[in-house]
Amino acid sequence: MAHVTIEWTANLEGQMDVEALMSLVAADMRERADGVFPVGGIRVRAFRVDDYVIADNACADDAFINLDVKMGAGRSPEFRQRYFDALFARITGFLQPLSESRPLALSMYVKEAEGWKHNTIHDRLKKAS
């Protein structure tokens, strides 16, 4: 399980390719995480935030993008540090043109989560291979 929720401020509308950012994160989890995240458990979604206050609320150009990552327990601290450092660097690189053109706060938080799941996507993936 690796679920990523991306929140981005409405003032970025038309300036950021949200689909490309989601695809970057999902592909990274599939292809660069050494199989740690089962493909059928990867979820990436994005929500535009229409109501927000940033810093002193004095600059309409201030914007933020936040990624919240939830994953099942059991990944080693070494893996988490190495993998999420690299993922954050790739996301920062992807967003560099945007962050050079306006004030932008980028953050990513990673949490282990316990949950209950029922997922038949794994079955579909087994049949397809």
Rank of each mutant, 00 (worst) to 15 (best):
M71D: 00
M71I: 05
G72F: 06
G72V: 06
R75Y: 08
R75P: 03
S76C: 13
E78T: 13
E78M: 09
E78I: 09
F79Q: 03
F79R: 06
Q81P: 02
R82Q: 02
R82F: 01
R82V: 01
Y83A: 01
F84P: 05
F84A: 02
D85Y: 11
D85N: 15
A86L: 10
L87W: 01
L87S: 00
L87T: 00
F88V: 04
R90T: 05
R90M: 00
R90A: 01
I91M: 05
I91A: 01
T92W: 04
G93T: 15
G93E: 15
F94L: 05
F94R: 00
L95G: 01
L95F: 08
Q96T: 10
P97M: 09
P97F: 12
S99H: 09
S99G: 09
E100K: 07
S101E: 13
S101N: 15
R102F: 10
P103E: 03
P103C: 06
L104R: 03
L104C: 06
A105M: 15
A105D: 15
L106M: 12
L106C: 07
S107F: 10
S107R: 07
S107W: 08
M108E: 09
M108D: 02
M108T: 07
M108N: 07
Y109N: 06
V110F: 01
V110N: 04
K111M: 14
K111R: 14
K111L: 15
K111V: 11
E112Y: 10
E112V: 12
A113H: 05
A113L: 08
G115F: 14
W116M: 12
W116G: 06
K117H: 10
K117D: 09
H118A: 10
H118S: 10
N119Q: 06
T120Y: 08
H122M: 12
H122I: 12
D123L: 13
D123T: 14
R124T: 06
R124D: 03
L125A: 02
L125H: 02
K126R: 14
K126H: 11
K126G: 06
